[in-house]
Design a binder for these strands. Structure first.
Length: 654
RNA sequence: GCUCCCUUAGCUCAGUCGGUAGAGCGUCUCCAUGGUAAGGAGAAGGUCGACAGUUCAAUUCUGUCAGGGAGCUCCA
């Protein structure tokens, strides 16, 4: 009997009978692996477990605990869902159904424009579980392109994918289904097959730990002008336990939702009378904002910035000169007509700062000139894009514009990055990722030399600060390259906050000049720069990052003092006055509630310190300290010692 | 803006197969004076998002609008 020999990842070799598959190999090694294996990697290619192995192949078995295995499970689950949809809604036509982080989706169309709702989702999920029980094999077939065009002739989206790829758009993401001139597809049953490059799990019985999450609309190929398909998102895992853990994580993330915490902690609200995307700041939110803004002003003052203020509206001529009415009109609020002129609410602060620069003749000795403003802007965000504080229609930027000579750019960028990271670190962020966006392919303004030197300056600044970054080739705006900085929050989500954007355009449009040492007039370069970006959004991110547990320097109430009984109320108020005199934000809760209840209320409000004072404390000038997040209560802490402790917390911004 | 879903007391939600409504928390009052995550009792509080339509009757069914959520698109 002939045999074949394969090499495993550890270098060991196994002999198997002729015709053996990767699945046979797994079974040969052990029943546990046979059960766990999902696909195999043979000579660096991902394949199904039922493909016969060639003699001398390098074989590695991929299990569900590998990232790649999980990816396969999600991909196969997308197929499973498509089959269930087709069973329940004959005539459905499918577009694409890829695995994504934590799950998968599938885009499709139903006959007669039928749309699905949450109940349909339950039915589809139930049908999927039946198909899992049926344990259908995933069978792979390869056919020629003409055969594929015939097989999928009733599937317009699949046809389009085949045609797009065969007509030469070979770099397309869709190329996966096609290798050379063949198309592969998988058949699960007599009634369901799907074009797909695979690989897949051996059979549907290997799936089952999934949950369909939501149905949404999605444009075909992401293009607003093309038909909108239905998309079902689901999550899928290799075990029931993992699925459950994921669902618990989602619940925990939902508990941090800044819109929910804004309500629970009485920070901000969105009265419908104001309109979408417009918030009012309640006292507890407003005090945090004041601290953020005070901090920002102080840092800018130390950083050598000049302060500025500008009005909320300006005549159309300003926006014509700046170009905003040409390329940003859709994002602007409509104008108010007055005295024969059109006044637009400002979507940006830059033109005002440009006018301040332009208000007199500038010498090279004044550069770099750095103008800073907490400037409130209004932008017409699409109604579907508005989202709590994260995406508002009115918001305040910590905006500054640096006017510099070409020669100063590199140094200035480096110091800006320094400044930015210092601010972000003070707000508790420790992980950063940057993106460098370079000159776009299409038309752009500015000569090659300035693009090259500015881009090199940005890159040098990133490297000097040891920041991880990716380059988005051609991703810059037409008027200059930029750096965007993302932070990771406490649960690992990335938020884009800060931007440093070069601008070669506005100085041209406004004909900005400075007098150089040789007496010649030269054009400065402008740098737009926001650190928090939008104060609103930054606050939203902080709420979620800290889950409402603001560090003492930001907490609206730093300590709440609870007298044990009425007899201790005067003492409590005395301690509160002393702490307030030391500069802290203090409340006294002498409400008609039992102590346990009042402690709970303080905890629910996420106050850093709940202080309890009773007979012992009155006698000894002490407080009982119940710190947030700490189980044990500390008794007999002197008021002085507590004052020092709180001061240290505030100073450490922790 | 597009697709789907949602809107009932200050908040979180029940409920009415069409006959105008309930709970918990919160608020107020009273009792309880309590040493560390919910003491007890009572009261007030709702044009059931708005406007039309169907109906003897609409909070409930239908439509339009407004607001909100998820996703898509967008974020120069």
């Amino acid at each position: 009997m002939s045999a074949l020999t394969v090499t495993l990842p550890d270098g060991s070799q196994r002999s198997l009978p002729e015709g053996s598959t990767a699945g046979d190999l797994a079974a040969e090694i052990g029943p546990g692996l046979a059960k766990a294996a999902v696909i195999a990697i043979v000579d660096d290619k991902e394949i199904d477990l039922d493909v016969p192995l060639a003699d001398g192949a390098d074989v590695s078995l991929v299990t569900a605990s590998d990232e790649l295995g999980l990816h396969t499970i999600r991909h196969s689950t997308a197929h499973l869902m498509a089959q269930a949809i087709l069973d329940l809604h004959p005539g459905a036509r499918f577009a694409i159904g890829p695995p994504i982080e934590h799950g998968f989706y599938y885009d499709f169309d139903l006959p007669d424009g039928k749309t699905l709702n949450d109940e349909d989702l339950e039915a589809i999920e139930a049908r999927m579980h039946e198909l899992v029980a049926a344990d259908q094999p995933f069978e792979r077939y390869e056919i020629s392109v003409p055969e594929a065009l015939d097989l999928f002739k009733d599937e317009p989206y699949k046809m389009e994918i085949i045609e797009a790829v065969t007509s030469g758009a070979a770099n397309s993401d869709d190329a996966g289904e096609l290798s050379g001139d063949t198309v592969s597809y998988y058949r699960n049953s007599d009634t369901f097959l799907d074009m797909c490059t695979g690989p897949h799990v051996p059979s549907t019985g290997r799936l089952g730990h999934f949950k369909l999450q939501r149905v949404a609309g999605a444009y075909w190929r992401g293009d607003e002008k093309r038909p909108q398909l239905q998309r079902i998102y689901g999550t899928a895992w290799s075990s029931k336990k993992e699925l459950k853990q994921h669902l618990v994580r989602l619940e925990e993330a939902a508990k941090r939702d800044h819109r929910r915490l804004a309500q629970e902690l009485d920070l901000v609200s969105w009265p419908t009378e104001l309109g979408p995307g417009l918030a009012v700041w309640h006292p507890k939110g407003a005090i945090i904002r004041k601290i953020m803004e005070d901090y920002s002003r102080q840092r800018h003052e130390e950083g050598g910035y000049d302060f500025a203020y500008s009005p909320h509206i300006a005549k159309s001529v300003l926006w014509e000169t700046s170009g905003h009415l040409d390329f940003y009109a859709d994002g602007m609020y409509p104008p108010m007509e007055m005295d024969g002129a059109s006044y637009y609410p400002k979507p940006m602060n830059c033109p005002f700062h440009v006018l301040i620069f332009k208000s007199g003749q500038r010498s090279y000795r004044e550069l770099p000139k750095k103008i800073f403003e907490l400037g409130t802007v209004y932008r017409y965000e699409l109604s579907g894009a508005v989202h709590g504080l994260m995406r508002s229609r009115g918001f305040t930027q910590d905006d500054s514009h640096v006017f510099a000579t070409r020669e100063q750019i590199a140094d200035e960028l480096s110091s800006l990055l320094d400044f930015m990271l210092g601010v972000l670190r003070d707000f508790g962020f420790t992980e950063f990722e940057a993106k460098l966006s370079t000159r776009p392919e299409e038309k752009s303004v500015g000569d090659d030399e300035i693009w090259d030197s500015a881009t090199a300056g940005l890159q040098a600044a990133l490297e000097a600060h040891g920041l991880d970054y990716v380059v988005d080739e051609g991703g810059g705006a037409f008027y200059g390259p930029k750096i965007d900085v993302d932070v990771r929050d406490a649960i690992g989500r990335a938020w884009q906050l800060s931007t440093i954007q070069l601008d070669f355009n506005l100085p041209e449009r406004f004909e900005l000049e400075y007098v150089a040492p040789d007496g010649e007039r030269k054009r400065p370069v402008m740098i737009h720069r926001a650190l928090m970006g939008s104060i609103e959004r930054f606050f939203g991110v902080l709420i979620e990052h800290y889950a409402g547990n603001f560090p003492a320097w930001l907490a609206p109430v730093q300590a709440r003092i609870l007298p044990v009984a009425e007899a201790h109320e005067d003492y409590a108020r005395g301690v509160a006055d002393r702490l307030r005199a030391a500069g802290f934000r203090i409340e006294v809760d002498a409400a008609n509630d039992p102590l346990g209840k009042r402690v709970r209320n303080g905890k629910v409000q996420k106050i850093p310190y709940v202080l309890v004072v009773g007979d012992d404390d009155m006698a000894n000038d002490t407080v009982g300290v119940n710190a947030r997040g700490v189980k044990d209560v500390e008794r007999d802490v002197t008021v002085d010692a507590f004052t020092e402790r709180l001061a240290a917390d505030v100073a450490a911004k922790s």
